[in-house]
Amino acid sequence: MLSKRIIACLDVRDGHVVKGVNFEQLRAAGDPAELAARYNTEGIDELVILDITATLERRRALADTVRAVARELFIPLAVGGGIRTEEDAAAAVEAGADKVSLNTAALADASLITKLAGRYGSQAVVVAVDAKRAGEGFAVYARSGQTSANRDAVEWAREAEDRGAGEILLTSIDRDGTKVGFDCELTAAVSRAVSIPVIASGGAGTLDDFVEVFTRGCADAALAASVFHYAETSVRALKDYLHQRGIPVRR
């Protein structure tokens, strides 16, 4: 049976892992390669490196970080943040990324999804959707949550799939870093609307939050940063807990 994946996210700025709350108030959380090695030993299923303040001059630093993380890692590695062009994606893949995650650039020009899927296959293209509750629905935001994209999250996820995305990385801006639980309504709405896997992100705090997002939220994978970085929850303990509750995980 296909396992539910537990994914650790490393938000990286200038070669260091940082973590914020509601996409702000960043604080340092460690060395990327060290954290990656620790998570791997604990049985993490996948890693995401997100360059949260990517600029042109820092892109080389990101490639170095990806290379350092990928060196001893034999599980899937996704890289996102500041991937705007085919060249950016090529640099990430060349450095060892198995998947690239597109966000703002895909909103600006959705044909980039199709281009990258054509070149690397859909399995290598993740579309990251940052969403915030807006009335009855969920609104998409671009530029690290700064700008409204004037799109509905469910509708955008469907378009991303149709254009060739292999997975959706769905982050609740409302819940990011708050540890009050995933937004299961948002996750279920998107997961039911697409055939590709949906990775839920934003709000993980307790072990039960993961149970909730895999059941009520219909998530295929759950991503967290804060709860793992500060060793509040070990990956192993989380998986044991999920297994006891009948949720298939890799152990």
Partner: peptide, 10 residues
């Protein structure tokens, strides 16, 4: 629900 593509650890 059986999603295709089949992605993940099995």
């Amino acid at each position: 629900v059986i999603k295709v593509p089949h992605v993940g650890w099995n």
